[in-house]
Write a protein that binds this DNA or RNA. Structure first.
Length: 415
RNA sequence: GCGGGUGUAGCUCAGUCGGUUAGAGCGCUAGAUUGUGGAUCUAGAGGUCGGGGGUUCAAUUCCCCUCACUCGCCCCA
């Protein structure tokens, strides 16, 4: 390591990027709040089984992407690769059964050991929403509507497509899975190497293969729709009907499957073609058996996660930062007075910048670089008259303002 | 984990068919302007040419390895 470097797949988020990330989180949380979701903040690491058991021992995430380690007390710990399992664990440990239904919004970093690409880092940030304790399709409709509304608020909804599918209840899923295994086993010699591997581990995934040969075989594969029992069928119909009422467009995609074991019924992805291979910006589904898997009371759940980096790359409607007022003291007496004035104006709610050093010219240059609306120039002349020079930096107009009237005059300035 | 591309100043990039002190634009610093920013002009700072090894009289340039980014696969947010 000649030059000090960030660890592979990690990024420093500063400046414009930080503003965009902040905007995505703020917009999402604000929207979630209007939908009645409360904030939850969970640990960044958990005992490894929390993720290993729920996501599935056969899933890629568990098999090769987890940041797991033994801590100094000998505990087997994993940095969270997602939020859902941790939130369900929190639900169980916190004894929250009596408060059902619960609606949670969370955001923060997650970790997966993968090969980095644009929109895919090893430490990445997610927004996350979960509804616990609602068995009916109302939760599915609301959670998808929330995702759509956040995309709308970010100005991205018309650049995304909602892909929708159902995996049915566990019974339906199991019979379908068996049928798929039977079908693909008959065509095993024509399948790609990857898909032969999937056949053993996660046969549903073959439906999603990009391999040309696989696609041909998939074309005639049995369809989930034909294996849904009537309850699952009715459930999915109700979800679709709700989305129709809300005029949320969706694309029924029978090949949309999820890689994690805990999903049942509704599965969905908001995808974009603007990010290359990493098209999913918000994705999730129903996971009715998950909490039980963790040893909790049988409790239905549904949720989604969104990639903040991906959303931030697309969303260009972040509000411009508020333009500051530059305070420019000249001389020692002025420094002291300005220090106090600066504090007072900030307490009054103004965004105020006071450079730590420099003459008038330098400080005005800095003010200009910060895109300040105005400068308050305070020198011996002004102090003698109990005034301050207020310079509008957009048009160069200057006026003398009494020290006591500064706030009032600043309020009259255009943004 | 597999395959392809890229890596030269803070940023965006030229360039060297192997040969003295490696360039530009933008940005940065200072001055013209010791109390007036943006524009202009002048000057300056800033590079072990991603890192390590090899070939050679000589490597930023050729070869090997490695690291990082990037595109696709895999997987996923």
């Amino acid at each position: 390591m000649a030059k000090i470097q960030p660890v592979r797949g990690t990024h420093d988020i500063v400046g414009e990027t930080a503003a965009r990330h902040g905007h995505v989180v703020a917009a999402a949380r604000d929207c979630a709040r209007r939908y009645g979701f409360g904030d939850i903040d969970i640990p960044i690491f958990e005992f490894t089984p929390v993720f290993a058991r729920t996501m599935g021992e056969g899933s890629d995430v568990v098999r090769k992407e987890m940041y797991s380690f033994t801590d100094r007390g000998g505990e087997d710990i994993t940095l969270r690769p997602e939020f859902t399992a941790g939130i369900c664990r929190a639900f169980i440990s916190g004894g929250m059964q009596q408060d059902l239904p619960l609606k949670f919004f969370a955001h923060g970093p997650a970790f997966r050991y993968e090969r980095p690409q644009k929109g895919r880092q090893r430490q990445f940030n997610q927004i996350d929403a979960e509804i616990l304790g609602v068995a009916g399709p109302g939760a599915d409709i609301e959670i998808i509507a929330l995702g759509a509304e956040i995309l709308h608020d970010l100005g991205l909804l018309d650049r995304c497509v909602l892909e929708l599918n159902t995996l049915g209840d566990p019974d339906s899923r199991r019979t379908y899975r068996d049928a798929l295994v039977a079908y693909f086993s008959d065509h095993k010699d024509a399948l790609s190497e990857d898909s032969i591997d999937r056949l053993a581990r996660n046969p549903l995934r073959i439906l999603d293969s990009k391999d040309e040969g696989d696609r041909k075989i998939v074309r005639d594969a049995p369809l989930m729709a034909d294996f849904l029992n009537s309850e699952s069928e009715d459930f999915f119909a109700a979800v679709c009907e709700g989305l129709d009422v809300l005029e949320i467009a969706y694309n029924l995609n029978p090949r949309l499957v999820r890689g994690l074991d805990y999903y049942t019924h509704t599965a969905f992805e908001f995808v974009t073609d603007a990010l290359g291979a990493q098209g999913a910006v918000i994705a999730g589904g129903r996971y009715d058996g998950l909490i039980e898997m963790l040893g909790g009371p049988s409790t239905p759940g549904i949720g989604w996660a969104g990639g903040i980096e991906r959303l931030a790359m697309l969303a260009d409607n972040a509000p411009a930062p508020e333009r500051p007022i530059a305070l420019v003291p000249l001389g020692e007496a002025a420094e002291r007075l300005a220090l106090k004035m600066c504090h007072g104006l900030r307490r009054d709610g103004f965004v105020v910048d006071m450079a730590f050093r420099g003459n008038l010219s330098r400080r005005l240059k800095r003010a200009n670089k910060l895109h300040a609306r105005a400068a308050l120039i305070l020198g011996d002349d002004e102090i003698a008259r109990n005034m301050v020079t207020l310079r509008n930096l957009d048009d160069g107009e200057q006026q003398d303002v009494a020290l006591d009237d500064v706030a009032a005059h600043l309020r009259l300035l255009p943004e």
